[in-house]
Write a protein that binds this DNA or RNA. Structure first.
Lengths: 127, 127
DNA sequence: GGGAGCACATGAGCTA
DNA sequence: TAGCTCATGTGCTCCC
């Protein structure tokens, strides 16, 4: 083997290696960027959840509430559970009131025009 | 300087290095464990939020809903906003119904005993 | 000095 | 193969 051939091989191998490394670097950086966008999205959502928390939850006794990711998520779970219960209670209360109203209207229907709506409330149920 | 002194210094330096490395390794592993616990906690909360989503949100048209962290958090924000609106609507509806009932009771109060409660509903407001 | 929270880069795994 | 999500380890920064 001549020395020249060896050098050529070396050059070729070197160039090949450089190309591979370049490609790898490109892919790595692209991957990093995508991953960062994903992280930012998740963090933004968590932060948004934090802004949706009621005062009663964000206010900690003594001073400023420490709103790290864990507590934001924990309180959000708690809040959703409470709101679900509140919605059920309201729904029940509305049912009772409508029932009473219907009975009253029925009693008065003999000689008096209906003066209130008797429609049954049907609201969204985002529970 | 004697050779013995040099060796002793080497040994001492070596031992010192080992101790430092050991300490560093310990701290690193401890930190890793703590960090893993923190991550697990956050992930568990997100997963819990996922289970609290209503069917209408988890069911995607066409097939299985892809519930990755981002979508869980996005839908949770959406859900909380909807529930807050629903709660306001219910509150308003209850107010209206109670108002109507009070008026009716007043009209009939001349010769008829009150047959319904006139108490005003005051429910929790976890918004 | 040590614990807690966070952002980051990176490799592994899944799906079109 | 390319793109996306995820878990992990690690360094940095506060705060005790």
């Amino acid at each position: 083997m001549s020395q020249e051939t060896g050098d050529e091989d070396d050059f070729a191998a070197q160039a090949n290696l450089q190309a591979i490394m370049e490609k790898r670097r490109r892919r790595r950086e692209s991957h990093n960027a995508v991953e960062r966008r994903r992280r930012d999205n998740i963090n933004d959502r968590i932060q948004e959840l934090g802004t949706l928390l009621p005062e009663s939850m964000t206010a900690e006794e003594g001073g400023v509430a420490r709103l790290n990711k864990g507590t934001i998520l924990r309180k959000s779970v708690e809040q959703i559970r409470m709101m679900q219960k509140d919605l059920r209670d309201y729904q029940q209360r509305v049912r009772e009131l409508e029932e009473t109203l219907n009975q009253l209207n029925h009693q008065n229907s003999s000689r008096r025009a209906r003066n209130t709506t008797t429609t049954t409330t049907r609201m969204q149920q985002h529970v």
